[in-house]
């Protein structure tokens, strides 16, 4: 059996808007059937990278293959086999759900169009709302419509740009169950998100900052590679402890979580020394904990100040 080609395999993508380099030498590989998370602060270039991958923007440099097609030459073929869900809702608000889906079915030359539309509607539980205008839908339902529309033509690769922003937790859970079900069937997914719990549901994650990909791998790999130590302080004196730890040697992050204080740092020795001393002085209990993905991301974001542009 030969090794299947990755669904996305791009190297050295560069995109500039004017003088500003928004995507800088990004190389990204996503294996078939994989759910790959795409994370990074606002304005770091996630949307731009996704648009480059689906041919909506022309890269200033870089090459690659998407679904085995050349990124630069076969944009038309890539479009036919990719489903792209935009960050901003971009279906017609003055068309009903069913009309929007019929439109999409027509553009992908699905036949018979009505059968595809009806199946998609019932799969996503949209049948009863099919005559409602898309513009009158709530955020969660708009999201569902957008997802329905971009999987109707059975794409091989799904590009989802913050698909669950502003969606309630239950709908979010259902959405992810759906994504996992699709991936089981062999669909490849690249999904951008700001939610940690969603990142943890991905097979792999990629972290981009100021246009550069600075970390990727499985969640545990990314956490391990960050080489962070985390200590937890408990007790009544944590407010005082937080004050004292601010700026102490080895301490990079201090975050109160209810009755506990998380202290994170890169230099394990210095960190342990500072925390132990403060724990003694404030009579709080100190214990070591697993570093969370969130801690890693906060570290990555503060690591390059001004990550938000």
């Amino acid at each position: 059996m030969n090794v299947p080609e990755p669904a996305i395999d791009v190297q050295g993508l560069v995109k500039r808007f004017g003088k500003k380099t928004v995507v800088n030498q990004v190389s990204l590989t996503v294996e078939q059937g994989e759910i790959s998370g795409f994370l990074g602060p606002n304005g770091s270039g996630k949307t731009t990278t996704i648009r480059l991958v689906c041919g909506l923007l022309t890269p200033d440099a870089g090459t690659g293959r998407v679904l085995g097609y050349d990124l630069l030459r076969d944009a038309a073929r890539i479009k036919r086999e990719v489903g792209y869900m935009t960050q901003r809702f971009s279906f017609y608000e003055d068309l009903s759900i069913a009309e929007n889906l019929s439109f999409v079915a027509g553009l992908y030359q699905l036949f018979p169009a009505q059968e595809h539309v009806q199946n998609t509607l019932s799969d996503l539980g949209l049948t009863v709302r099919q005559h409602q205008l898309a513009g009158n839908l709530s955020g969660g339902w708009k999201q569902r419509l957008a997802l329905a529309a971009c999987i109707m033509h059975k794409p091989k690769l799904l590009l989802l740009d913050e698909p669950t922003a502003g969606v309630d937790p239950k709908a979010r859970r259902e959405f992810w169950d759906e994504i996992h079900a699709l991936a089981e069937k062999g669909l490849t997914v690249l999904v951008s998100t700001h939610y940690m719990d969603e990142a943890e549901r991905c097979h792999r994650i990629n972290y981009i900052s100021q246009g550069s990909l600075i970390a990727s791998g499985t969640v545990s790999e990314v956490v391990k590679n960050a080489k962070l130590r985390t200590f937890i302080l408990t007790g009544t004196g944590i407010a005082k402890a937080a004050e004292m730890l601010a700026g102490a040697p080895g301490v990079d992050q201090i975050a109160p979580f209810g009755l506990t204080l998380h202290v994170v740092g890169q230099d394990a020795k210095l960190l342990e020394k500072s925390v132990a001393q403060v724990a003694k002085e404030t009579k709080t209990t100190m214990s070591e904990a697993e570093t969370s993905l969130e801690d890693v991301f906060i570290q990555l974001m503060t690591g390059d100040e001004g990550g938000v542009s």
């Binding site: 038309a76 003055d94 068309l95 019929s102 439109f103 027509g106």
Partner: peptide, 23 residues
């Protein structure tokens, strides 16, 4: 089929017609 498709054109026309009628 890839350069021009009546089915795609039809989908576009229907969509325009609906939008025109709604506006």
């Amino acid at each position: 089929r890839h350069f021009f498709s009546l089915r795609r054109l039809y989908a576009l026309l229907v969509k325009e017609a609906i939008q025109m009628r709604r506006d």
